[in-house]
Design a protein around this nucleic acid. Structure first.
Length: 472
RNA sequence: GCCCCCAUCGUCUAGCGGCCCAGGACGCUACCCUUUCAAGGUAGAGAUCGCGGGUUCGAAUCCCGCUGGGGGUACCA
């Protein structure tokens, strides 16, 4: 039997990393077994669903490389299917109309709360005869459709969480269809899963308490329940539910942070799944080969942003040059030719963990710096230093060859003459050249920049620092 | 409150009764490299396997209780 799995986000928010991981595991499982990965948009909540969020979710999936085989299907376009299923369940007596008013339900819930028990629908409608039910409906009384839950425990056999038994007292005749005719989540999910022939449901544990309802629904619909695999949650660094409060949580936010999709995917894969044998860095293909539901973890895991950055750095170092340029382009590259940029990239790549960081670091190869790290300036620049810097500029201007080797030689000789350590010369020069005291090896940077630019930057720095401080 | 799930270094995890006084990775510390910062290399600290009972010749691994954490409890998804 070919496995058929689905990822079913609801467009009430962007694609959350938790959702992305769920999608990834479904995708991996399908690929591994030559199955079908279906994308289904659960937009039955018309008040909260937004069209542009659907687009955003689809874009995020594509960005991550998680292509779908069927869909996207929109539940909002399948209302006929739900209506037919509802009619059938009603006709077969597996569901019934409940005519209770909101006030009556509210009172019943309060009562349950006071009794410190789980609210369980026990309205009179449950026992109405079909004739009575039809008569009231025809008379225009408002009603919802409820599922008649079985009076026996429901067992959920979960591949990840194990076996759980739910007592009938804990199960409620939940609502399938609202009084305005809108089908509800649990109902649409099961109808769709049956209709789409879903064989395995892989999703977050937050859905585990819903599963007995689904099992009952599958039974009522006369279909076998799929195999369930409930994943542990992804938590924030503080162990609380991951949200915007923890910084980035939506996939598109990581994209703007300069995270590579393959790094995010790899990182996410390891949150709740392990291939064993201490494997960490893997391509989607490698993950597919190694993936099994048996190796999924049941416990919740925290999202460690630091490790993601490390992972991203690893992928950034190995990134194909052409693709790197394509990714860097929109972030702004210095207006230089390709040969020049190649050299700059060699110097800066290993010093960056994200694309944004890299693009930022590359700025020193563009326009001359106009601002200089104030703390460093304060510390390094003294009246005695400036003439020395000017002299150093003069010295290197005469260099017949302007390479990191000749520059280092010149700098060492210059430092020795001045009875200074190399660092005492290099740091102020670095400040003049880059605006900061942190950069790739100075003489390499100068070689890339060229004699003219390097000398000009040092001189203009000396000039700027020699000028009397601006009156406040 | 009630229901459900989870529990190995700070974090992600390996471990599915003896190979474990617990292995890898991130992070951290030190050293090497070095003009700064990274990258890289080497070494190291870091978990009495949440606690308490069992079962067993033997438990991180099985069972029970407790504690802690998470989730659910809608005419939301």
């Amino acid at each position: 039997m070919t496995p058929r799995v689905r990822f079913a986000p609801s467009p009430t928010g962007s694609l959350h990393v938790g959702g992305a991981r769920t999608a990834l595991y479904n995708w991996l499982f399908a690929k591994k077994h030559g199955g079908v990965f279906i994308l289904r948009i659960e937009d039955t909540d018309v008040e909260r669903s937004r069209k542009e969020l659907t687009t955003q979710i689809l874009d995020a999936m594509t960005w991550l490389g998680l292509s779908w085989d069927e869909g996207p299907f929109f539940q909002s376009e399948r209302t006929e299917l739900y209506r037919a299923a509802a009619d059938r369940l009603l006709r077969e007596g597996k569901a019934y109309r409940a005519f209770d008013t909101p006030d009556e339900l509210e009172a019943a819930k309060k009562e349950a709360e006071a009794a410190k028990t789980l609210f369980r629908y026990t309205g009179a409608s449950r026992d109405f005869s079909p004739e009575e039910s039809d008569r009231r409906a025809a008379a225009g009384e408002k009603f919802v459709l409820r599922l008649r839950m079985p009076d026996e425990p429901i067992v959920v056999d979960d591949l990840v969480q194990g076996r759980a038994e739910f007592a009938p007292e804990a199960l409620d005749d939940f609502v399938l269809v609202r009084s305005d005719g809108h089908p509800l989540y649990h109902f649409t999910v099961c109808v769709d899963d049956v209709e789409m022939g879903i064989t395995h449901v892989i999703r977050g544990v937050d859905h585990l308490p819903n599963t007995p309802k689904h099992v009952a629904l599958f039974r009522a619909l006369g279909a076998p329940a799929p195999v369930f695999a409930h994943l542990g949650m992804i938590l924030g660094g503080d162990g609380k539910k991951l949200s915007k409060r923890h910084g980035a949580a939506g996939v598109e936010e990581f994209q703007t942070l300069g995270i590579l999709p393959e790094a995010l995917v790899n990182f996410l894969a390891l949150l709740g799944w392990s291939p064993g044998e201490d494997r960490e860095r893997m391509t989607l293909e490698e993950m597919t080969a190694l993936f099994t539901l048996e190796r999924l973890g049941a416990s919740p895991s925290r999202f460690d942003h630091e490790k993601l950055l490390w992972m991203n750095g690893q992928y950034l170092q190995a990134l194909d040059q052409e693709r790197l340029y394509a990714l860097l382009q929109p972030l702004g590259l210095p207006d230089r030719d390709r040969t020049f940029l190649d050299c700059a990239l060699v110097l800066n790549r290993s010093r960056s963990r994200t694309l944004v960081e890299l693009a930022h670091g590359l700025r020193i190869y563009g326009d001359d710096p106009t601002e200089f790290d104030p703390a460093a300036t304060q510390k390094l620049v003294t009246p005695e230093l400036l003439p020395k810097l000017a002299a150093f500029a003069d010295r290197i201007e005469t260099l017949p060859e302007f390479t990191h080797a000749t520059l280092e030689e010149a700098a060492r000789a210059f430092a020795a003459e001045q009875s200074l350590s190399l660092g005492k010369v290099a740091q102020p020069v670095r400040l003049a050249i880059t605006g900061t005291t942190i950069s790739p090896p100075l003489f390499d940077v100068m070689e890339v920049l060229g004699k003219e630019t390097s000398v000009r930057r040092i001189r203009s720095f000396v000039k700027q620092q020699s000028a009397p401080p601006e009156p406040a």
